[in-house]
Write a protein that binds this DNA or RNA. Structure first.
Lengths: 231, 231
DNA sequence: CAGATACGCTACGACCAGTAGCGAAAGAGC
DNA sequence: GCTCTTTCGCTACTGGTCGTAGCGTATCTG
């Protein structure tokens, strides 16, 4: 806090507050209107791709900024003009993968959850996510700014999926329609942590595979009494 | 693999294959019978304590071997004579905390689970575990030896707790006694990943607290139909 | 006492994150 | 076309870390 009073006044595209990785020209997004030479959007893409590639090959610990720059055909200083640190670069590189997640309405809550779990597990078996995800979470535990970025770009989009699934189920009449919204929101939180945490733990900590059969049993556990478990 | 054929023949206490951190003299453990000057058990303890302390203060990224050595009043080289790397040292430092977990029989499966979840959550709010656990899991994803050590010293003891809880419940007649042991083992695996993963995710990723109320709701979700969730 | 081993110390090699300063390139606005 | 602004690539550098080597000394066993 208490920013030193310096107001550099010479940061056209602020070094940390990143411009969106492009693709925004036709989006109606405000596109910042810089005056000088614009940043190369191609470089952005090349850097993110190179990051994922290096991550998959070398893991979090093996990835170096110099290596990424070389793979992307770009100077190392260019990386630091766009991302404030290695961690934040990796967040962005990984986040795009999680954008592919979606919650399609398959007619029942159980089917919806099974589909999203399967897709999520698939993402977590990619070598790049496997190498990066836990390292990012760990890094974020000591860096509030990084934590915020992780939440925004990786965690929140997943949570929205659970919320969406819940809304679909409610629309289908699978759930009590008179539920107190506050309570419902809390439940979404519990279920989100349960789904994401369990799949991550099984794949990344226990190191056991997530098969269709496992998904079915886990989802059943989530939605009702585990057959034969009690009584 | 394919170890270079060198057979140093001068490793009395092998540098990686650690001697148990002591406390074993009266345990009937075989106590290795070295011939020269024995390792200082006090140093072992001092190092592990210093590691936890540094972890709590500086986090995983901030912890350095030099600093730990200084806190422990020991030369840095001594650390490396006992642990092959920073990661493995931290595993041992953290593992001792998880030894405190236990599954006391409180008369019902729900009560047992609630107790163990509460205790687990308590451990995960310690700054030292908070700083180390995810970092270790991340590190382990690229290092099989470390992964093995983590499983042995941290994950497996937790899993045993779930198994124990299940046995207690079965003894109390809360569960089907004729259950196929193979299926039962798989179920223990699912439930273990669910409990550990969910609590970790909530505390370390979502960053939300684990209250008594949350524990009750989560356990209820685990054991039966979430009240009012479906239908 | 002799042999074996652990210990502390100092120094070192290799590597990496992140920064500094420059000249050159590439757009924007006129 | 010209100027102004900003980015880009390059090279070099700082500061810090892991992990190792070599030595003399301390401590234990037989």
């Amino acid at each position: 806090m208490a920013p030193t009073t310096r107001q550099p006044a010479e940061q056209p595209h602020p070094p940390d507050d990143r411009t969106p990785p492009d693709g925004a020209v036709a989006d109606g997004a405000v596109a910042v209107r810089g005056k000088g030479r614009p940043r190369s959007a191609a470089a952005d893409q090349a850097i993110l791709d190179a990051t994922r590639e290096a991550l998959a090959e070398l893991g979090w610990g093996g990835l170096t900024m110099g290596d990424v720059a070389q793979r992307a055909g770009v100077a190392k200083t260019t990386l630091y003009r766009r991302w404030p640190s290695k961690s934040e670069l990796v967040v962005d590189a990984i986040a795009s993968l999680f954008d592919q997640l979606e919650c399609t309405d398959r007619g029942s809550l159980q089917a919806d959850i099974e589909a999203v779990v399967a897709r999520f597990a698939e993402l977590l078996t990619l070598p790049e996510t496997q190498a990066a995800l836990l390292a990012l979470f760990a890094e974020g535990s000591r860096d509030p700014q990084l934590r915020r970025r992780i939440r925004e770009r990786i965690v929140q989009p997943q949570k929205v999926l659970v919320e969406l699934g819940r809304a679909n189920a409610q629309a289908r009449g699978e759930m009590d329609p008179d539920r107190d919204p506050a309570v419902a929101a809390e439940e979404v939180g519990i279920i989100f942590d349960t789904i994401a945490g369990t799949v991550e733990h099984r794949l990344l900590v226990s190191g056991e595979p997530v098969t269709a059969d496992w998904i079915r049993r886990f989802t059943t556990l989530l939605l009702g009494p585990f057959p034969g478990l009690l009584r």
